[in-house]
């Protein structure tokens, strides 16, 4: 039996070596990861707003498209991304806002795009999520996301908010309802909550966020 001191020393040395290795690798990969994250964010803003771009566009091309078409504005403390094609006059064609919140395993972040009436959903994307693949992870699938298109963020009763419907076999009926994913109740609950937090800012009674015309 080796002495306690040896055990402590061994653990300290092994721990330090492992930590140094990981720190070095994290430092080395940090710029690549930051670039990936930025490209991912831009890609999702463009996709949510339905800005046309080629599927195999490089990160650089995406950033270029983003710069020419999107105007980043701060309205009442909310960053909105307005879709303004270079030749466009009048109102922006669409507006995207970021939403974020805790998921089941990690944070979920995404963009919600609205038509210029600020009520109809134009698109939704998720750019960060660690949900269970095959279950909650299906929120990124087009089948789930496409349900949102054309839905209203204001319900039949005039209240702001959307519903991700779980019960009932007949599927979503109301203009602000979409179907949940079977087996991913927790994820759907959380996504619903974070979407409604953003929607409250936009479509709530006290909201002052308005789309402004281009001058």
């Amino acid at each position: 039996m080796k002495s306690n001191l040896y055990v402590l020393g061994y653990a300290a040395v092994l721990g330090t070596v492992c930590a140094l290795l990981l720190t070095a690798s994290a430092n080395f990969t940090a710029p690549y990861k930051a670039a990936n994250a930025r490209a991912e964010e831009v890609l999702n803003i463009l996709a949510a707003l339905k800005v046309p771009f080629q599927e195999d566009a490089s990160a650089k091309q995406l950033l270029e498209i983003f710069k020419t078409n999107i105007r980043e504005q701060n309205r009442e403390g909310v960053t909105v991304y307005e879709y303004l094609p270079p030749q466009a006059k009048g109102k922006p064609q669409a507006v995207a806002v970021r939403f974020a919140g805790p998921g089941l395993w990690g944070p979920i972040k995404g963009f919600l795009a609205l038509e210029s009436d600020m009520k109809t959903i134009r698109g939704i994307t998720f750019y960060e999520q660690e949900e269970t693949p095959g279950l909650g992870g299906e929120i990124v699938s087009s089948a789930f996301r496409e349900q949102f298109i054309g839905k209203s963020i204001v319900g039949e009763d005039g209240k702001a908010g959307i519903v991700i419907r779980r019960s009932g076999g007949q599927g979503a009926r109301n203009k602000n309802e979409v179907d949940a994913i079977t087996g991913a109740t927790m994820t759907c609950d959380k996504v619903e909550a974070m979407l409604n937090a953003v929607i409250k800012n936009i479509a709530g009674k006290k909201s002052k966020i308005k789309v402004q015309n281009v001058k």
Binding site: L21, L22, S25, A26, F28, T29, Y32, K33, N36
Partner: peptide, 8 residues
């Protein structure tokens, strides 16, 4: 290490 590599 592998995870960092994939992410980068």
């Amino acid at each position: 290490l592998f995870d960092q590599f994939l992410k980068a």
